[in-house]
Design a protein around this nucleic acid. Structure first.
Lengths: 255, 255
DNA sequence: TTCTGATGTTACGTCAAGCGTAACGTGTCA
DNA sequence: TGACACGTTACGCTTGACGTAACATCAGAA
Protein backbone atom coordinates (compact mmCIF):
# COMPACT_ATOMS: atom_id res chain seq x y z
CA UNK A 1 0.00 0.00 0.00
CA UNK A 2 2.65 2.46 1.00
CA UNK A 3 4.59 3.65 -1.95
CA UNK A 4 8.14 3.87 -0.75
CA UNK A 5 9.25 4.81 -4.21
CA UNK A 6 8.75 8.22 -5.71
CA UNK A 7 5.30 7.47 -7.11
CA UNK A 8 3.55 10.79 -6.81
CA UNK A 9 0.86 10.19 -4.26
CA UNK A 10 -2.06 12.36 -5.20
CA UNK A 11 -4.11 14.31 -2.76
CA UNK A 12 -1.36 16.53 -1.47
CA UNK A 13 -1.47 20.28 -1.78
CA UNK A 14 1.40 21.30 -3.96
CA UNK A 15 1.78 24.85 -2.73
CA UNK A 16 1.96 23.60 0.84
CA UNK A 17 4.41 20.95 -0.22
CA UNK A 18 6.67 23.49 -1.84
CA UNK A 19 6.38 25.73 1.22
CA UNK A 20 7.66 22.84 3.33
CA UNK A 21 10.49 22.43 0.87
CA UNK A 22 11.38 26.06 1.39
CA UNK A 23 11.15 25.77 5.15
CA UNK A 24 13.37 22.70 5.34
CA UNK A 25 15.76 24.32 2.93
CA UNK A 26 16.14 27.32 5.20
CA UNK A 27 16.62 24.93 8.11
CA UNK A 28 19.46 23.24 6.29
CA UNK A 29 21.06 26.37 4.89
CA UNK A 30 20.88 29.24 7.36
CA UNK A 31 21.26 32.72 5.90
CA UNK A 32 20.27 31.60 2.45
CA UNK A 33 18.89 34.14 0.01
CA UNK A 34 15.82 34.11 -2.17
CA UNK A 35 17.64 33.47 -5.42
CA UNK A 36 19.50 30.49 -4.04
CA UNK A 37 16.37 28.88 -2.73
CA UNK A 38 14.70 29.51 -6.04
CA UNK A 39 17.58 27.85 -7.85
CA UNK A 40 17.85 24.86 -5.54
CA UNK A 41 14.15 24.12 -5.30
CA UNK A 42 13.75 24.91 -8.98
CA UNK A 43 10.79 27.20 -8.64
CA UNK A 44 10.31 30.75 -9.84
CA UNK A 45 11.40 33.60 -7.62
CA UNK A 46 7.99 35.19 -7.25
CA UNK A 47 6.63 31.88 -6.04
CA UNK A 48 9.36 31.41 -3.46
CA UNK A 49 8.98 35.03 -2.40
CA UNK A 50 5.29 34.49 -1.71
CA UNK A 51 6.14 31.35 0.24
CA UNK A 52 8.77 33.12 2.32
CA UNK A 53 6.45 36.02 3.06
CA UNK A 54 3.79 33.64 4.27
CA UNK A 55 6.25 31.74 6.44
CA UNK A 56 7.73 34.96 7.74
CA UNK A 57 4.39 36.41 8.72
CA UNK A 58 3.86 33.38 10.96
CA UNK A 59 7.33 33.59 12.46
CA UNK A 60 8.54 30.35 10.96
CA UNK A 61 11.33 32.13 9.15
CA UNK A 62 12.93 35.48 9.67
CA UNK A 63 14.45 37.83 7.16
CA UNK A 64 17.61 39.71 8.04
CA UNK A 65 18.40 43.23 6.90
CA UNK A 66 20.73 41.73 4.35
CA UNK A 67 17.87 39.86 2.77
CA UNK A 68 18.89 36.43 4.00
CA UNK A 69 16.55 34.01 5.68
CA UNK A 70 16.76 31.94 8.86
CA UNK A 71 14.35 29.93 10.89
CA UNK A 72 12.26 31.96 13.30
CA UNK A 73 10.78 31.79 16.75
CA UNK A 74 7.73 29.81 15.80
CA UNK A 75 10.01 27.03 14.61
CA UNK A 76 11.54 26.83 18.08
CA UNK A 77 8.15 26.61 19.69
CA UNK A 78 7.10 23.95 17.22
CA UNK A 79 10.17 21.85 17.82
CA UNK A 80 9.92 22.04 21.58
CA UNK A 81 6.32 20.91 21.42
CA UNK A 82 7.28 18.11 19.06
CA UNK A 83 9.91 16.77 21.47
CA UNK A 84 7.24 16.21 24.07
CA UNK A 85 4.72 14.80 21.61
CA UNK A 86 6.81 12.19 19.85
CA UNK A 87 6.65 9.17 22.15
CA UNK A 88 9.90 7.67 21.00
CA UNK A 89 11.90 10.79 21.76
CA UNK A 90 10.16 11.57 25.02
CA UNK A 91 10.68 8.07 26.35
CA UNK A 92 14.14 7.47 24.98
CA UNK A 93 15.70 10.79 26.01
CA UNK A 94 16.25 10.08 29.71
CA UNK A 95 17.34 6.52 28.97
CA UNK A 96 19.76 7.84 26.38
CA UNK A 97 21.16 10.25 28.91
CA UNK A 98 21.63 7.53 31.48
CA UNK A 99 23.38 5.44 28.86
CA UNK A 100 25.63 8.32 27.96
CA UNK A 101 26.50 9.02 31.57
CA UNK A 102 27.46 5.40 32.15
CA UNK A 103 29.59 5.08 29.05
CA UNK A 104 30.84 8.66 29.16
CA UNK A 105 30.60 8.69 25.38
CA UNK A 106 28.20 10.10 22.79
CA UNK A 107 24.88 8.29 22.42
CA UNK A 108 22.24 8.71 19.71
CA UNK A 109 18.72 7.65 18.87
CA UNK A 110 18.19 7.04 15.17
CA UNK A 111 15.27 6.04 12.98
CA UNK A 112 14.83 5.12 9.36
CA UNK A 113 13.61 8.09 7.38
CA UNK A 114 13.44 8.26 3.65
CA UNK A 115 15.99 5.52 3.12
CA UNK A 116 18.51 7.01 5.50
CA UNK A 117 19.14 6.94 9.23
CA UNK A 118 18.05 10.13 10.96
CA UNK A 119 19.24 11.30 14.39
CA UNK A 120 16.28 12.45 16.46
CA UNK A 121 17.83 12.54 19.94
CA UNK A 122 21.33 12.57 21.36
CA UNK A 123 23.51 12.80 24.41
CA UNK A 124 27.04 14.17 24.46
CA UNK A 125 29.29 13.69 27.50
CA UNK A 126 31.12 16.56 29.18
CA UNK A 127 34.63 15.82 28.10
CA UNK A 128 37.04 17.58 25.85
CA UNK A 129 37.25 15.02 23.10
CA UNK A 130 34.04 13.37 22.07
CA UNK A 131 32.14 12.29 19.00
CA UNK A 132 29.86 15.05 17.82
CA UNK A 133 26.21 14.22 17.20
CA UNK A 134 23.52 16.42 15.72
CA UNK A 135 19.79 16.10 15.67
CA UNK A 136 18.62 16.07 12.07
CA UNK A 137 21.84 14.67 10.68
CA UNK A 138 21.39 11.89 8.15
CA UNK A 139 23.66 8.95 7.54
CA UNK A 140 23.52 6.02 5.15
CA UNK A 141 21.80 2.85 6.26
CA UNK A 142 24.20 0.46 4.63
CA UNK A 143 27.45 1.54 6.26
CA UNK A 144 28.61 1.78 9.84
CA UNK A 145 26.74 0.42 12.80
CA UNK A 146 23.46 2.00 11.72
CA UNK A 147 23.02 -0.92 9.38
CA UNK A 148 21.46 -2.53 12.41
CA UNK A 149 18.34 -0.70 11.22
CA UNK A 150 18.63 -2.50 7.92
CA UNK A 151 19.31 -5.87 9.48
CA UNK A 152 15.95 -6.10 11.16
CA UNK A 153 13.83 -5.22 8.14
CA UNK A 154 12.07 -7.81 6.02
CA UNK A 155 14.45 -8.97 3.30
CA UNK A 156 12.19 -7.49 0.64
CA UNK A 157 12.18 -3.99 2.09
CA UNK A 158 15.84 -4.40 2.90
CA UNK A 159 16.77 -4.89 -0.73
CA UNK A 160 15.03 -1.68 -1.76
CA UNK A 161 17.16 0.30 0.64
CA UNK A 162 20.51 -1.01 -0.55
CA UNK A 163 21.87 0.87 -3.55
CA UNK A 164 23.30 -0.95 -6.52
CA UNK A 165 26.82 0.20 -5.79
CA UNK A 166 28.01 0.72 -2.25
CA UNK A 167 30.08 3.90 -1.93
CA UNK A 168 33.33 3.68 -0.01
CA UNK A 169 33.95 5.97 2.95
CA UNK A 170 37.06 4.39 4.45
CA UNK A 171 39.19 1.32 4.03
CA UNK A 172 36.87 -0.59 6.30
CA UNK A 173 33.67 0.20 4.42
CA UNK A 174 31.87 -2.88 3.13
CA UNK A 175 31.41 -2.39 -0.60
CA UNK A 176 30.55 -5.94 -1.56
CA UNK A 177 26.88 -6.87 -1.65
CA UNK A 178 27.31 -10.48 -0.61
CA UNK A 179 29.54 -9.48 2.24
CA UNK A 180 27.02 -6.88 3.40
CA UNK A 181 24.19 -9.42 3.41
CA UNK A 182 26.38 -11.80 5.37
CA UNK A 183 27.12 -9.06 7.88
CA UNK A 184 23.40 -8.21 8.20
CA UNK A 185 22.75 -11.86 8.94
CA UNK A 186 25.33 -11.77 11.73
CA UNK A 187 23.91 -8.57 13.13
CA UNK A 188 20.45 -10.09 13.24
CA UNK A 189 21.81 -13.08 15.10
CA UNK A 190 23.83 -11.13 17.63
CA UNK A 191 21.40 -8.25 18.06
CA UNK A 192 24.24 -5.77 17.83
CA UNK A 193 26.38 -4.13 15.18
CA UNK A 194 29.85 -2.80 15.75
CA UNK A 195 31.57 -0.56 13.23
CA UNK A 196 35.32 -0.08 13.38
CA UNK A 197 35.83 2.99 11.27
CA UNK A 198 33.47 1.98 8.46
CA UNK A 199 32.21 5.53 7.94
CA UNK A 200 34.76 7.68 9.77
CA UNK A 201 38.29 6.58 10.41
CA UNK A 202 39.27 6.28 14.04
CA UNK A 203 35.68 5.95 15.19
CA UNK A 204 34.09 2.96 16.85
CA UNK A 205 30.32 2.81 16.87
CA UNK A 206 28.08 0.24 18.55
CA UNK A 207 24.37 0.04 17.70
CA UNK A 208 21.48 -2.12 18.82
CA UNK A 209 17.91 -2.11 17.57
CA UNK A 210 14.86 -0.91 19.48
CA UNK A 211 12.20 -3.46 18.65
CA UNK A 212 8.43 -3.53 18.92
CA UNK A 213 6.75 -6.62 20.39
CA UNK A 214 6.16 -7.98 16.90
CA UNK A 215 9.89 -7.87 16.29
CA UNK A 216 9.74 -4.99 13.84
CA UNK A 217 12.47 -2.40 14.20
CA UNK A 218 11.42 1.01 15.50
CA UNK A 219 14.75 2.70 15.94
CA UNK A 220 18.38 2.16 16.85
CA UNK A 221 20.45 3.48 19.71
CA UNK A 222 24.18 3.69 19.53
CA UNK A 223 27.31 4.70 21.36
CA UNK A 224 30.17 6.21 19.38
CA UNK A 225 33.70 6.75 20.65
CA UNK A 226 37.21 7.50 19.41
CA UNK A 227 38.98 4.26 18.55
CA UNK A 228 42.14 5.02 20.54
CA UNK A 229 40.36 4.83 23.87
CA UNK A 230 38.01 1.99 23.02
CA UNK A 231 39.14 -1.51 23.92
CA UNK A 232 37.30 -4.70 23.13
CA UNK A 233 36.20 -4.76 26.75
CA UNK A 234 34.60 -1.34 26.29
CA UNK A 235 32.73 -2.52 23.23
CA UNK A 236 31.41 -5.44 25.23
CA UNK A 237 30.35 -3.18 28.04
CA UNK A 238 28.64 -0.76 25.65
CA UNK A 239 26.83 -3.65 24.04
CA UNK A 240 25.38 -4.80 27.35
CA UNK A 241 24.38 -1.29 28.35
CA UNK A 242 22.84 -0.66 24.93
CA UNK A 243 20.81 -3.86 25.01
CA UNK A 244 19.59 -2.99 28.44
CA UNK A 245 18.62 0.51 27.38
CA UNK A 246 16.90 -0.72 24.22
CA UNK A 247 14.87 -3.22 26.22
CA UNK A 248 13.78 -0.45 28.55
CA UNK A 249 12.69 1.76 25.70
CA UNK A 250 10.80 -1.08 24.05
CA UNK A 251 9.03 -1.87 27.28
CA UNK A 252 7.96 1.70 27.93
CA UNK A 253 6.80 2.10 24.36
CA UNK A 254 4.58 -0.92 25.06
CA UNK A 255 2.04 1.76 24.99
CA UNK B 1 -14.29 42.94 1.98
CA UNK B 2 -14.99 41.70 5.45
CA UNK B 3 -11.73 42.75 7.02
CA UNK B 4 -12.83 44.31 10.25
CA UNK B 5 -9.90 45.11 12.45
CA UNK B 6 -6.71 43.47 11.22
CA UNK B 7 -6.02 44.53 7.68
CA UNK B 8 -4.73 41.34 6.14
CA UNK B 9 -1.51 42.00 4.34
CA UNK B 10 -1.92 40.68 0.85
CA UNK B 11 0.64 38.59 -0.94
CA UNK B 12 0.42 35.61 1.31
CA UNK B 13 -0.56 32.18 0.08
CA UNK B 14 -3.75 31.26 1.79
CA UNK B 15 -3.46 27.50 1.53
CA UNK B 16 0.00 27.66 3.08
CA UNK B 17 -1.31 29.97 5.75
CA UNK B 18 -4.09 27.58 6.66
CA UNK B 19 -1.62 24.69 6.67
CA UNK B 20 0.44 26.59 9.23
CA UNK B 21 -2.72 27.10 11.22
CA UNK B 22 -3.25 23.36 11.21
CA UNK B 23 0.34 22.65 12.16
CA UNK B 24 0.32 25.05 15.08
CA UNK B 25 -3.02 23.72 16.14
CA UNK B 26 -1.67 20.20 16.33
CA UNK B 27 1.30 21.56 18.27
CA UNK B 28 -1.03 23.10 20.81
CA UNK B 29 -3.47 20.21 21.01
CA UNK B 30 -1.68 16.87 20.77
CA UNK B 31 -3.82 13.90 19.75
CA UNK B 32 -6.42 16.09 18.13
CA UNK B 33 -8.65 14.63 15.46
CA UNK B 34 -9.59 15.86 12.03
CA UNK B 35 -13.09 16.98 12.95
CA UNK B 36 -11.90 19.05 15.88
CA UNK B 37 -9.29 20.83 13.82
CA UNK B 38 -11.90 21.46 11.17
CA UNK B 39 -14.23 22.95 13.75
CA UNK B 40 -11.64 25.09 15.47
CA UNK B 41 -9.98 26.44 12.35
CA UNK B 42 -13.38 26.77 10.70
CA UNK B 43 -12.46 25.11 7.46
CA UNK B 44 -14.08 22.18 5.70
CA UNK B 45 -12.98 18.69 6.58
CA UNK B 46 -11.75 17.76 3.11
CA UNK B 47 -9.53 20.82 3.12
CA UNK B 48 -8.03 20.01 6.51
CA UNK B 49 -7.61 16.41 5.46
CA UNK B 50 -5.61 17.47 2.43
CA UNK B 51 -3.49 19.71 4.64
CA UNK B 52 -2.83 16.96 7.16
CA UNK B 53 -1.91 14.50 4.45
CA UNK B 54 0.57 16.91 3.02
CA UNK B 55 2.08 17.62 6.43
CA UNK B 56 2.15 13.94 7.28
CA UNK B 57 3.92 12.95 4.12
CA UNK B 58 6.72 15.29 5.09
CA UNK B 59 6.89 14.03 8.65
CA UNK B 60 5.71 17.26 10.22
CA UNK B 61 2.73 15.52 11.76
CA UNK B 62 2.01 11.91 12.46
CA UNK B 63 -1.27 10.08 12.46
CA UNK B 64 -1.93 7.44 15.10
CA UNK B 65 -3.93 4.29 14.49
CA UNK B 66 -6.79 5.93 16.29
CA UNK B 67 -6.87 8.71 13.74
CA UNK B 68 -5.44 11.39 16.01
CA UNK B 69 -2.61 13.68 15.01
CA UNK B 70 0.60 14.73 16.70
CA UNK B 71 3.70 16.54 15.62
CA UNK B 72 6.25 14.36 13.87
CA UNK B 73 9.96 13.88 13.57
CA UNK B 74 10.53 16.61 11.05
CA UNK B 75 9.18 19.11 13.55
CA UNK B 76 11.86 18.05 16.02
CA UNK B 77 14.57 18.49 13.46
CA UNK B 78 13.18 21.87 12.49
CA UNK B 79 13.06 23.09 16.06
CA UNK B 80 16.55 21.94 16.86
CA UNK B 81 17.88 23.72 13.83
CA UNK B 82 15.93 26.83 14.78
CA UNK B 83 17.46 26.93 18.25
CA UNK B 84 20.89 27.23 16.71
CA UNK B 85 19.82 29.73 14.07
CA UNK B 86 17.99 32.27 16.18
CA UNK B 87 20.76 34.47 17.53
CA UNK B 88 18.87 35.59 20.58
CA UNK B 89 18.21 32.06 21.78
CA UNK B 90 21.64 30.74 20.93
CA UNK B 91 23.38 33.55 22.75
CA UNK B 92 21.02 33.85 25.68
CA UNK B 93 20.73 30.15 26.50
CA UNK B 94 24.04 29.64 28.29
CA UNK B 95 23.70 33.01 30.05
CA UNK B 96 20.20 32.05 31.13
CA UNK B 97 21.50 28.78 32.51
CA UNK B 98 24.24 30.53 34.45
CA UNK B 99 21.65 32.91 35.85
CA UNK B 100 19.42 30.03 36.85
CA UNK B 101 22.26 28.19 38.53
CA UNK B 102 23.19 31.23 40.57
CA UNK B 103 19.66 32.02 41.67
CA UNK B 104 18.58 28.39 41.88
CA UNK B 105 15.22 29.49 40.52
CA UNK B 106 13.43 29.35 37.16
CA UNK B 107 14.66 31.77 34.50
CA UNK B 108 13.07 32.65 31.18
CA UNK B 109 13.76 34.53 27.99
CA UNK B 110 10.70 36.27 26.58
CA UNK B 111 9.96 38.36 23.53
CA UNK B 112 7.00 40.34 22.28
CA UNK B 113 5.03 38.32 19.78
CA UNK B 114 1.66 39.25 18.47
CA UNK B 115 0.83 41.53 21.38
CA UNK B 116 1.78 38.97 24.00
CA UNK B 117 4.96 37.86 25.68
CA UNK B 118 6.28 34.57 24.36
CA UNK B 119 8.73 32.28 26.15
CA UNK B 120 11.47 31.17 23.75
CA UNK B 121 14.07 29.81 26.18
CA UNK B 122 14.09 28.73 29.80
CA UNK B 123 16.04 27.23 32.64
CA UNK B 124 14.52 25.28 35.50
CA UNK B 125 16.59 24.44 38.60
CA UNK B 126 16.88 20.92 39.98
CA UNK B 127 14.79 21.26 43.06
CA UNK B 128 11.51 19.80 44.13
CA UNK B 129 9.46 22.94 44.19
CA UNK B 130 10.00 25.39 41.37
CA UNK B 131 8.12 27.62 39.02
CA UNK B 132 7.30 25.80 35.85
CA UNK B 133 8.21 27.43 32.56
CA UNK B 134 7.39 26.27 29.07
CA UNK B 135 8.75 27.29 25.72
CA UNK B 136 5.87 28.55 23.60
CA UNK B 137 3.73 29.67 26.49
CA UNK B 138 2.17 33.08 26.07
CA UNK B 139 1.42 35.61 28.77
CA UNK B 140 -0.11 39.08 28.72
CA UNK B 141 2.16 42.07 28.34
CA UNK B 142 0.31 44.34 30.70
CA UNK B 143 0.41 42.24 33.86
CA UNK B 144 3.20 40.80 35.94
CA UNK B 145 6.85 41.58 35.48
CA UNK B 146 6.71 41.02 31.73
CA UNK B 147 5.34 44.52 31.43
CA UNK B 148 8.98 45.44 31.33
CA UNK B 149 8.65 44.66 27.64
CA UNK B 150 5.91 47.23 27.40
CA UNK B 151 7.78 49.83 29.40
CA UNK B 152 10.56 50.21 26.89
CA UNK B 153 8.41 50.63 23.82
CA UNK B 154 7.64 53.98 22.26
CA UNK B 155 4.55 55.42 23.94
CA UNK B 156 2.63 55.20 20.69
CA UNK B 157 3.23 51.49 20.16
CA UNK B 158 2.75 50.97 23.86
CA UNK B 159 -0.80 52.29 23.77
CA UNK B 160 -1.78 49.90 21.00
CA UNK B 161 -0.75 46.92 23.12
CA UNK B 162 -2.77 47.90 26.18
CA UNK B 163 -6.38 46.73 26.02
CA UNK B 164 -9.24 49.05 26.93
CA UNK B 165 -10.06 47.08 30.06
CA UNK B 166 -7.36 45.37 32.06
CA UNK B 167 -8.44 41.90 33.18
CA UNK B 168 -7.84 40.97 36.79
CA UNK B 169 -5.84 37.84 37.61
CA UNK B 170 -5.26 38.32 41.34
CA UNK B 171 -5.79 40.92 44.00
CA UNK B 172 -2.50 42.51 43.08
CA UNK B 173 -3.21 42.91 39.37
CA UNK B 174 -3.11 46.49 38.17
CA UNK B 175 -6.45 47.20 36.51
CA UNK B 176 -6.28 50.96 36.39
CA UNK B 177 -4.85 52.55 33.26
CA UNK B 178 -3.33 55.57 34.96
CA UNK B 179 -1.72 53.40 37.57
CA UNK B 180 -0.31 51.10 34.92
CA UNK B 181 1.24 53.99 33.01
CA UNK B 182 2.72 55.27 36.24
CA UNK B 183 4.19 51.84 36.92
CA UNK B 184 5.63 51.63 33.41
CA UNK B 185 7.29 54.98 34.01
CA UNK B 186 8.89 53.63 37.18
CA UNK B 187 10.02 50.49 35.45
CA UNK B 188 11.68 52.51 32.72
CA UNK B 189 13.49 54.55 35.34
CA UNK B 190 14.68 51.62 37.41
CA UNK B 191 15.35 49.23 34.55
CA UNK B 192 13.60 46.43 36.40
CA UNK B 193 10.08 45.27 37.11
CA UNK B 194 9.08 43.19 40.10
CA UNK B 195 5.72 41.49 40.30
CA UNK B 196 4.42 40.29 43.63
CA UNK B 197 1.66 37.91 42.63
CA UNK B 198 0.17 40.10 39.91
CA UNK B 199 -0.58 37.16 37.65
CA UNK B 200 -0.28 34.13 39.92
CA UNK B 201 -0.74 34.33 43.65
CA UNK B 202 2.27 33.39 45.70
CA UNK B 203 4.67 34.05 42.86
CA UNK B 204 7.37 36.66 42.70
CA UNK B 205 8.78 37.50 39.30
CA UNK B 206 11.64 39.86 38.48
CA UNK B 207 12.24 40.97 34.88
CA UNK B 208 14.74 43.22 33.17
CA UNK B 209 14.89 44.24 29.53
CA UNK B 210 17.46 43.14 26.99
CA UNK B 211 18.18 46.27 25.00
CA UNK B 212 19.81 46.97 21.66
CA UNK B 213 22.37 49.77 21.43
CA UNK B 214 19.70 52.14 20.20
CA UNK B 215 17.78 51.53 23.40
CA UNK B 216 15.00 49.53 21.73
CA UNK B 217 13.82 46.50 23.63
CA UNK B 218 14.68 43.12 22.12
CA UNK B 219 13.53 40.79 24.84
CA UNK B 220 13.18 40.35 28.58
CA UNK B 221 14.78 37.91 30.97
CA UNK B 222 13.23 37.06 34.28
CA UNK B 223 13.56 35.01 37.40
CA UNK B 224 10.42 33.62 39.00
CA UNK B 225 10.19 32.08 42.46
CA UNK B 226 7.65 31.07 45.10
CA UNK B 227 6.88 34.03 47.35
CA UNK B 228 7.41 32.18 50.61
CA UNK B 229 11.13 31.73 50.03
CA UNK B 230 11.78 35.07 48.40
CA UNK B 231 12.93 37.89 50.69
CA UNK B 232 13.52 41.46 49.62
CA UNK B 233 17.23 40.70 49.72
CA UNK B 234 16.67 37.91 47.20
CA UNK B 235 14.81 40.27 44.89
CA UNK B 236 17.70 42.68 45.08
CA UNK B 237 20.17 39.93 44.33
CA UNK B 238 18.11 38.67 41.39
CA UNK B 239 17.90 42.19 40.04
CA UNK B 240 21.65 42.58 40.02
CA UNK B 241 22.20 39.19 38.44
CA UNK B 242 19.52 39.87 35.84
CA UNK B 243 20.97 43.22 34.88
CA UNK B 244 24.36 41.64 34.55
CA UNK B 245 23.02 38.84 32.39
CA UNK B 246 21.01 41.24 30.22
CA UNK B 247 24.07 43.39 29.64
CA UNK B 248 26.02 40.32 28.60
CA UNK B 249 23.36 39.26 26.12
CA UNK B 250 23.12 42.76 24.69
CA UNK B 251 26.85 42.91 24.26
CA UNK B 252 27.09 39.58 22.49
CA UNK B 253 24.18 40.44 20.26
CA UNK B 254 26.19 43.54 19.31
CA UNK B 255 27.05 41.52 16.29
C1' DT C 1 31.61 57.12 -16.02
C1' DT C 2 28.79 53.35 -18.44
C1' DC C 3 27.79 48.75 -19.11
C1' DT C 4 26.54 44.22 -17.51
C1' DG C 5 24.43 40.92 -14.88
C1' DA C 6 23.21 39.91 -10.67
C1' DT C 7 19.73 40.89 -6.98
C1' DG C 8 14.65 41.50 -4.94
C1' DT C 9 10.23 43.22 -6.21
C1' DT C 10 5.61 44.51 -8.46
C1' DA C 11 1.82 43.95 -11.76
C1' DC C 12 -1.38 41.38 -14.22
C1' DG C 13 -3.90 38.19 -17.25
C1' DT C 14 -4.41 33.19 -17.51
C1' DC C 15 -5.33 28.60 -16.12
C1' DA C 16 -5.51 24.69 -13.45
C1' DA C 17 -4.95 23.71 -8.60
C1' DG C 18 -7.53 23.39 -4.91
C1' DC C 19 -11.85 24.27 -3.33
C1' DG C 20 -16.74 22.91 -1.39
C1' DT C 21 -20.77 20.08 -2.09
C1' DA C 22 -22.59 16.00 -1.85
C1' DA C 23 -22.55 11.24 -1.15
C1' DC C 24 -20.26 7.38 0.67
C1' DG C 25 -18.76 3.72 4.19
C1' DT C 26 -18.08 2.72 8.91
C1' DG C 27 -18.42 2.79 13.84
C1' DT C 28 -20.71 3.82 18.18
C1' DC C 29 -24.09 4.96 21.13
C1' DA C 30 -29.26 4.90 22.24
C1' DT D 1 -32.43 -0.55 14.26
C1' DG D 2 -32.14 3.73 14.00
C1' DA D 3 -29.45 8.20 14.36
C1' DC D 4 -25.53 10.62 14.23
C1' DA D 5 -20.99 11.12 14.57
C1' DC D 6 -16.64 9.99 12.18
C1' DG D 7 -13.14 9.87 8.02
C1' DT D 8 -13.03 9.57 3.23
C1' DT D 9 -13.88 9.88 -1.96
C1' DA D 10 -15.46 12.01 -6.22
C1' DC D 11 -16.08 15.73 -9.24
C1' DG D 12 -17.34 19.97 -11.50
C1' DC D 13 -16.59 25.02 -10.72
C1' DT D 14 -14.15 29.00 -9.45
C1' DT D 15 -10.90 31.72 -7.71
C1' DG D 16 -6.31 31.70 -5.87
C1' DA D 17 -1.95 31.16 -7.13
C1' DC D 18 0.78 30.85 -10.93
C1' DG D 19 4.52 32.55 -14.52
C1' DT D 20 5.82 36.18 -17.61
C1' DA D 21 7.45 40.33 -18.05
C1' DA D 22 9.00 44.64 -16.58
C1' DC D 23 10.79 47.17 -12.89
C1' DA D 24 14.21 49.14 -9.36
C1' DT D 25 18.61 48.65 -7.29
C1' DC D 26 23.15 47.39 -6.53
C1' DA D 27 28.07 45.69 -7.50
C1' DG D 28 31.66 44.87 -10.09
C1' DA D 29 33.94 45.21 -14.81
C1' DA D 30 35.24 47.61 -18.70
Amino acid sequence: MHDVAKEKTGDIIQSVDVAIDVLLHVAKHPDIRLSDISRNIEETKPRILRMLRTLEQRGLVRKSKMGTYRLGNTAIVLGTAASTQVDLVRIASPILEELGQKTNETAQLRIIDNGESLCIAKFEPMRDLRVQAMIGRRRPLFAGSYKVLLAFLQPQVQMQMIPATLPRFTNSTITNHAKLLQELENVRKNGVCVSYGEVSEQLVSVSVPVLAFDGSVIAAINVAAPAFRTQQSDVNRYTLLLKDAAAKISARLGW
